[in-house]
Design a protein around this nucleic acid. Sequence first.
DNA 1: TGAATAGTGTCTATTAGACATTATAAG
DNA 2: CTTATAATGTCTAATAGACACTATTCA
Lengths: 228, 228
Amino acid sequence: MARWRDEHGKALTDYERPSVAVDTAVLTVDGDRLAVLVVPGRGTRPMLPGTFLHPGERLRDAARRALAGKAGLHDVAFAQLEMFDDPKRDHRGWVLSMAHAAAVPRDRLPADALLVPIFEGSARERLEYDHDAMVRLAVAKLRRQYAEHVDPARFLGETFTVLELRRLYETVFGRTFPKDTFRRHVLDGLENTGAMSVVGGGRPAELFRRSGVPLPSAAVAAFDHNPG
Amino acid sequence: MARWRDEHGKALTDYERPSVAVDTAVLTVDGDRLAVLVVPGRGTRPMLPGTFLHPGERLRDAARRALAGKAGLHDVAFAQLEMFDDPKRDHRGWVLSMAHAAAVPRDRLPADALLVPIFEGSARERLEYDHDAMVRLAVAKLRRQYAEHVDPARFLGETFTVLELRRLYETVFGRTFPKDTFRRHVLDGLENTGAMSVVGGGRPAELFRRSGVPLPSAAVAAFDHNPG
DNA sequence: TGAATAGTGTCTATTAGACATTATAAG
DNA sequence: CTTATAATGTCTAATAGACACTATTCA
C-alpha cells in the first residue's frame, strides 16, 4: 500500500485523495445544427456522459469506457479540455473531473441518442453540474481544430464537394462564409479525386478528399475570427 | 468517510484513488533568453516545482503553495496545461499530475533561482519525469498568449519602448521581427504615454503602455507562424 | 430554351514586407 | 558636421472580399 511524505513532510494518507472522474462533451452535426450528446441526469437537467477513473486506468480510457457503456460508441478520439476542481462541484464529495471533447458523426451515434443543440457556443439547455462550461470549451476547441484542418473529425465522408464542406463549416462556426473566398481558403487542404458528384439541377461538383495539409494561417484567422 | 458506487455499481473505495499532484513550468526572460525555473531533483536531473494536492484544495492553490514554498513566489497567475496520467509516470505509485504554466519577470524570482534555458521550444537540459513535455506545452501556451496580447505576463514594466517590446518578442518567439512591420502589428495594443525614453545616442523613443486591446488576427498569424 | 449550381476571372481596397526618408538626439 | 536611433512615408506583391462571368447539368 503506497504511503509517503511530500516535500513538506505532510503525510499523504490514502483517505485524503480525491476521486477523479472524466466527463466528455461529444459534439456532432445533426442536420444543420451542432449538438452535444447528453444522458439523463438524476434531476431534470441532462448531463454529459462520464465515469470515475478506475485504478491504473488512463483518463482517455475512462472516457472511452463511459462512451462505450452509455452510448454504444467505440473508437472515439478524445482531447483533454480542462480539469474542473471546485471542491464543491459534486454534492457526493470531493470529485475532480477532467473534461474531454470528442466529435462523432451523427450516424455513428445511436438513433435515439439525446442531443442538445448548440447555440452561440453553448448548450441551449442548462446541464447538470459544471457541464455547461465543459460544452463551451469543447465547442471552442472544435472550432480551433476546424480552422486549422479540413474537417478533422470527419463529419463528412471520405469525399465531398466544396458546397458540402462549406455547409458543414457554417454549422460548426455558426456563421456564413462567402462561397468563393471559402473555396480559396480550403483548397490547400483538399485533393481533387477527379470524380464528380451526382446531383440534379446544376453543374456537377468536383469531389475532393482531405489532403491533410494544414490550412494557411490567413484561413485560420478568417475562420476563427468573428463574422464581419 | 466518503464511499459510493459509480454508475456501473463498482464500489469506489479510497485506496483505489490516485494521488493528484501539480507541477508548474514557470517561464521567465533571463537577459535575452527564455528560461524555465527548476528545482534540484532527486537524481541528476532537475525538475519542475510541484506538490501533492491537499484535501479540499484547488489545483491552482496547490500550484501557488508549491511556488511559495520552493521559490518564494507569490501572486502568480496559472494556466492549466494538461493532465499527465500515465500510471507509470511516477515510480512512487499512481500519481496524476496537472501541469501548469506561469510567467514571472526575472526580478521577481530569487537571485539564486535555478534556470534552464529554452531552446527551440524545449528545455535545453533533460528534466525529471515527463517535465520536458510540460515545458514544451508551457512555451507554446506563452507564445499563443503573446501573439494575442501585448506582453500579458508583464515581463516589461508599465511603460516601454517599441524596441524593448520587439526585443522581448524576439526572445519569447525565438526569432527576429522586422522593426517596421512589428511596430504596425503591435500598435493597436499600445497606448502612447506622451513621455519619451531617456537614452543616449539617438532620437528618444516614445514610451507606451499596454492598451489591453487584443492584437489583430493578422498580427496573431504573423507572430504564431514560423519565421519566413 | 431556361433554371440551377459549380467554378473561375476580375476589380478594388487593404496590407505585409522591403526600402527609403525624415526626425531628434549625442559627440 | 557625423553617427545613431526612432518614426514614418512609399513602393510592390499578395490577397480578401465583392461581383460578374463562364461552364455544365436537368427539365
